[in-house]
Design a protein around this nucleic acid. Structure first.
Lengths: 239, 239
DNA sequence: TCTATGTGGAGAACTTATCTCCGCTTTATA
DNA sequence: TATAAAGCGGAGATAAGTTCTCCACATAGA
């Protein structure tokens, strides 16, 4: 359901003037604040997306903005530090899916986990689907998904599990679509993307004799109106 | 493919002080400018969404901002004037779809045309999917879609054309999903939503023996990267 | 105790919206 | 053609929001 990535970022400071490799540990209270900032950023970026301000992140972490900027030279730097491991996890997922013997199961494994990651983390979704954020290092990582993803698709098509007209690039769009679906409903029913994932997946088979069992109930009209009310409304107050 | 709604908005000015019904025509040049503003707003809202500024609309229309504000008291008023007829068109579409004898064809007719409208008009999509814009009158109009839409779904389910687990509220989410898909690709290949609509629709049948023929080719990897590059990037310059 | 290290958060600097105001221009009419 | 009423453009007032800096004060740790 949810995924956990242990982020282990350097808590040491490079001494710029001295000869190579010399590092110095942060003071204990400083180190704790740094971790609080990272946890806060992780949580708020995941919930509200990358437009979350560093003021909000600082406040949510219980520290001042200055403390954030002392540890991360800019917002961009914080984003990069935070998401590198998450993007790497996507690369790993693609390669790992290729090892599953049954090609349909491999395809589903990849797609389901990819969407699960992106649905539970709005910041990650924005990072993956756009080129606005993320420097060269993240871009290079993103490019590493292409080859295994193509092979996952070709393999499943070759075996007759996946409809012939499907292309690897469709994965990106389907990911975006289900991200939207989840963003729309998740405040009321977390994980609603699985409902629509079932529909889409049933549409990707060459043929089928029945419907897959659907995950999650549908929203009522009242709930839907509530979802509309909060759709894309700017995030108000992080506790 | 594309749809046309003739917008016929009052080009007269109410004389506030005088006894009821007295109206006065705009000067010819003023009338022309007013229409230019409406056309410009229609075009830019459709292409870039409701966050388009009135400065941009004015510039694109070849008039000053002052001229826009002289005719429409606020941005909200312009949006309301512009979209009332479009929302009414959705209500009409729902009722008209119920008149189609075959309930599956009625369902597809409704969904396809609804998504077509919303895909070709980002502003309309934002208006329909959120409650941020649009006053009471538009809200009341939107509510009129609910009853016929529910009947469209129930009818198709009753006849065994549509899978049992589908609900009327799913229409809203599917609309949002395909809107996203189109937003993602439309700069490169307009109408790409039809490709993903085929996948989704094939997933909504209780069962099927083959795949529907797919509309539109997939994007190449290069095109997809280009799409990522422009995804959600702020609109730059309206010619 | 003492100092290098760290802190908070006001506010500088910048951006981006909406909407107003006023000197000048144009239309319509007598 | 002369005149007044209507209309025009767009600079800029106003407000909100965001990134990032700075410095008087606090604290860990030798």
């Amino acid at each position: 359901m949810s995924y956990i990535v242990v982020v282990e970022l350097s808590s040491t400071v490079e001494e710029p003037g001295e000869e190579g490799g010399s590092v110095r540990h942060l003071r204990r209270d400083a180190e704790m604040n740094r971790e609080r900032v990272l946890a806060s950023a992780r949580e708020l970026f995941a919930q509200y997306g990358l437009q979350t301000t560093l003021d909000e992140i600082a406040h949510h972490a219980g520290v001042g903005v200055g403390t954030v900027y002392r540890r991360f030279s800019s917002k961009e730097a914080l984003v990069e530090a935070l998401f590198e491991q998450r993007v790497q996890a996507i690369v790993d997922l693609a390669n790992e899916s290729l090892l599953i013997a049954n090609s349909w199961e491999g395809f589903v494994h990849f797609l389901e986990n990819l969407i699960s990651m992106e649905a539970s983390d709005r910041g990650l979704r924005e990072l993956v689907l756009s080129n606005d954020y993320g420097g060269e290092r993240l871009q290079a990582l993103k490019d590493q998904v292409e080859a295994p993803a193509s092979e996952i698709v070709e393999r499943a098509k070759r075996d007759g599990y996946l409809r012939e007209d499907f292309a690897a690039t469709d994965i990106v769009v389907i990911t975006a679509m289900l991200g939207t679906a989840d963003e729309y409903c998740s405040q009321l029913v977390p994980g609603m993307w699985r409902r629509y994932f079932t529909y889409v997946l049933d549409g990707l088979r060459p043929s089928r004799t029945s419907s897959s069992e659907i995950a999650y109930r549908s929203l009522s009209m009242e709930e839907m109106k509530c979802a509309m009310g909060s759709w894309r409304r700017r995030f108000q107050r992080a506790t």
